[in-house]
Every structure is written in structure tokens, then in C-alpha cells.
Amino acid sequence: MSQAVMFKFRLYVAADALNSAQALGNLTALCRRHLPDRHEIEIIDVFREPKRALADGIFMTPTLVKLAPVPSRTIVGTLSQTQLVMQALGLEALAP
């Protein structure tokens, strides 16, 4: 049943900062492994769109927001602790 659910992510990054790049790397790896073909990632560079960051209340980078499925979730950091990230995204069942 969970096959049909689409995961929508939005990742706020600070240009090419190291931790932002790490977060993006970790996120794509996670998605490729656990959510193949059922994820969307929107990347927002706060340096290019600062007003958007302000409006969205994003003050730490990198920040990952899971928009769908509800409930939405916010995770800050490089997403290097996979276990924790999976838990936060409600993907414990898929974890190895």
C-alpha cells in the first residue's frame, strides 16, 4: 500500500557549502535506496532566494522539509545519521 505514496522533499541549502552538499548527497542516496521512483526533491539555495528562506522560516542550513506525506517533518543537518533520519521520515519499516 505504501508503494503508491509519493514522498515530496524540499531541501534548503547554502550554495555549495560543505554540509549542504553532504546533506544533498545523503538525501539522494537514501531516496535512491529506499524510495526509488517515488520521491521528488526540490532544492532551494537560500543565497539565491533569501526572501523565500525568510518567508519559510528557515534559519539553519541545510534543512530538509518533508512536505508529503503528512505529517510534515523538518530535519536540520547533514542527514548523516541515517537511522535517525529514517525514523524521522517515518521510514523505519524500510530500514535494513
Binding site: N19, A23, N26, V46, K51, A53, I75, V76, T78, Q81
Partner: peptide, 16 residues
């Protein structure tokens, strides 16, 4: 309910 996983910084805030 914010989850912190790994290092982050304040450059997002400073950009805003």
C-alpha cells in the same frame, strides 16, 4: 519537533 541529524550552520539565516 525539529530533528537534528548531523552538522548544520546559520548561513541560511544570515542570507535571509
Amino acid at each position: 519537533e525539529l530533528v537534528q541529524a548531523g552538522d548544520f550552520d546559520l548561513s541560511g539565516m544570515l542570507a535571509a
